[in-house]
Design a protein around this nucleic acid. Sequence first.
DNA 1: TGCACATATAAGCATATACTTATATTATAA
DNA 2: TTATAATATAAGTATATGCTTATATGTGCA
Lengths: 115, 115
Amino acid sequence: MEKTIIELEQAAQTLKLLGDKTRLTILGLVKDSECCVCEFVEVLQMSQPSISQHLRKLRDAGLVKEQRRGQWIFYSLNREHATYPIIHQVLEQIPDQKEKLTALEEAGLRIQCDS
Amino acid sequence: MEKTIIELEQAAQTLKLLGDKTRLTILGLVKDSECCVCEFVEVLQMSQPSISQHLRKLRDAGLVKEQRRGQWIFYSLNREHATYPIIHQVLEQIPDQKEKLTALEEAGLRIQCDS
DNA sequence: TGCACATATAAGCATATACTTATATTATAA
DNA sequence: TTATAATATAAGTATATGCTTATATGTGCA
């Protein structure tokens, strides 16, 4: 990835959002695949409203996108965001969260939706 | 720089500290050279106690080192910190803060100390 | 010794943050 | 149409954060 310059204020805002264990894990999860709220709840073992509130912050800042499919709302990383290069770099340097989704899958709790 | 994996919790703690405009600027300044408190005060146009408190957080977390030289205390980036790779990457992607020090220098306000 | 400068620390306060519980919204399916 | 599931939002609360003002600490120098 080439070097991109991001305004300091905007970088600080994004870094503040990354500076929380829950949100950092959420971003680590959507780095690999779309996830719906109940999956975050399951993986992070936190209350649904708490997860929803974190997702709202990430979405309000534009770091993630949401897409409704049936009764589920799937969240994904917004790779078009101005500060995405920072997020990308950070996610490269923390442990992969993929296994947590694999565990869900094995437990048959992964949401599959074609609608 | 090669890829280094940093524990998620520790990464989040560092990112939280980076997620503040003042501290991010401070780190951007010490990226290039040591600075003393009064220089941060001058550049950032903030009160001395406020700057000191931000520096304390950065130092308590181990992100910066301090070194007393006479009546001044100089701060520098701790490149040995476990999360330094993250800091390095972030600082690569925000505007260079060097000019702010150049401006100080031209105003004759840069601290030179040989003791 | 005593004063001035650089810096740190303490205390107080307003605002932000991250939960909780309760309730509203939206979509599916019977 | 009604019940249920997934999600969002609202309101309340405890704690964290970032400033302020006031004061303490440490160093250099007359």
